[in-house]
Amino acid sequence: MLYIDAGTSFSKIMATNGDTMASLKPICESENKKFYIIRSSEISKLDTKFDGGTGHMSNDYLKDGIEVENEILALAYGVKKLRPELSTMTVLDIGSRDTKWVSFKNGKYKELDWNTACASATGATIEMLCKFYNVDAQTLKANKDKYPVTCGVFGMEKIMDEISKTKNVETAIAKYIHGIAFNAWNFAQKPEKIYLSGGFCESECFVKSLENYCEVEKLGRFVLVCGLEEQY
């Protein structure tokens, strides 16, 4: 079986029960499952139809009769699948263009939210900033200061101001990332611990910034796609 979480920038694919993506090299393998990551702009080249999918870009790549699954449900079922022992928790997923979270208390659903309207300050923005300034996102060091990025446009203005004054691009982007982390923690209702899903798990700058406010446990980029297995 093949499942896809097709985000705006990257797609996460899980192959189960002996299925495989012949043209891709797995990122990791476990329990008869293989996991892949590919740029979403490249999915059409795979010439593959999937058995289940979630995310903005998955609609065109599912087998006939298969409907796109709700991303929050995929996130909720994914964390239950990956960490069945957790009964009280908040899982937060930050994608290219949105932020969503769901919380459980004593094993039961408690709250959720999904923000796309003011999501200019998420993964895609950082990717564009790093490309524009030729900065390797993996080498960014967390900064104790942050920009207010409730409005991504105002946050961007702060970056431009800092760079024009100090010429220190890395510091400016790190402060921006710290602002995103602070926003995400507030958006998720200020939990004591966040189980983090999505591409920001790979950004030490983001994780360290978020740790200023709560404990963080990284679940990686395949939470939603794991949740799909539960839903189809």
Partner: peptide
């Protein structure tokens, strides 16, 4: 928006 509809469905 789609995300608002998805929130309602998930809830």
């Amino acid at each position: 928006t789609n995300s608002t509809k998805a929130k309602i469905q998930a809830y």
